[in-house]
Amino acid sequence: MTSAVLLRRLLPHRRARTLPSPAAPGELVAKAVGLRVALGGRAVLDGVGIGVRAGEVLALVGPNGAGKSTLLAALAADLAPSAGEVRIGGRPAGDWSAGELALRRAVLPQAAALTFPFPVAEVVRMGRAPWAGTEREDEDEAAVAAAMAATEVEAFAGRPFSALSGGERARVALARVLAQRTGLLLLDEPTAALDLRHQELVLRVCRERAAAGDAVVVVLHDLGLAAAHADRVAVLHGGRIEAAGPPSEVFDAHVLSRVYRQPVEVFPHPRTGVPLVVPVRPGPHRRPASPPLPERDNSPSLTGP
């Protein structure tokens, strides 16, 4: 019995579901209004509002603890806000059942863990579970194959997920999200465990999904990746959105230096014009010169030998 079949049998009885229609380019797919989230007695998000549109990549950036992952979880309706509202597909997120949400948004968490040693292909196929019993169930094999090809994991399709490296697991987890084929992708630090080649691969996949009409929200720490691949960026700081807009407008040296508490320089790439963000560093380290040795006094001693 495959993992996908097992999941379908374990899932509770589904009521009739309305399948989502593709969003028009630029259409608002998800929206947060006046969002406040408190965790451990601290306001992690306070009065946040943001919209996510079809056909764009929105990058959430900011220092550690700024609220990026919390905002992503709230947009996914995985975390209930203490105030404000999240809307997905034009309806309050709480109005959708879990199964209906799974047809409309796919979520990639920071860490991917499985208890059972499922083969890679079966892990990717788990992304198709929400479509079981619908007219789009026939797309399962094609969706799984396309997702594995896009993330370059076909070579180890039969290996146990638990035997993979951290970077390989990250790509398999992304393949599962892609196989789900929803109009809204919410990705939390998908490049964190990846080498240079696969970081670029993942962000190219994000761009391709946006070009195909999906809305993509991605949490990134690398400002260079955000500048090169995102249509819009939102800079979070202290639970609020400090600035939002195209990277060319938002990546300002003064704003970033203040938000990150690290002086930076921002200048355009000489070929593409994409903003480059570089920390201000001291000049080359030079070893201080040794103090001169005292000259030897060869004069006769006044105290005798």
Rank of each mutant, 00 (worst) to 15 (best):
E141H: 10
R240M: 13
V172H: 04
Q262Y: 00
L11H: 13
P246Y: 10
A24G: 01
G84L: 10
T115P: 00
L72M: 11
Q110R: 11
F251Y: 05
A253E: 15
P22S: 09
A32V: 14
H198V: 09
R14A: 15
E295A: 12
E242P: 04
G283E: 13
T303V: 14
H229F: 15
G51W: 07
P246V: 04
R159P: 00
A129H: 10
K31D: 08
A212H: 02
T182H: 03
A193T: 04
P117D: 14
L256D: 04
V255E: 01
E249G: 14
R128P: 09
L276N: 01
V277R: 03
T191D: 12
T191V: 14
K68A: 11
V52S: 05
V250R: 01
D231P: 01
P190M: 05
A192L: 13
P247R: 15
F156G: 05
S69V: 06
D46H: 12
V218F: 07
G127E: 01
S248G: 15
V37A: 04
A23Q: 06
P117K: 07
V33R: 14
P25T: 06
S3L: 14
A149Y: 00
P160H: 10
D95I: 00
R240C: 12
E137G: 10
V144G: 05
P63S: 14
E295D: 14
P63C: 06
V57E: 11
F251V: 06
V57K: 04
S3K: 00
A244M: 11
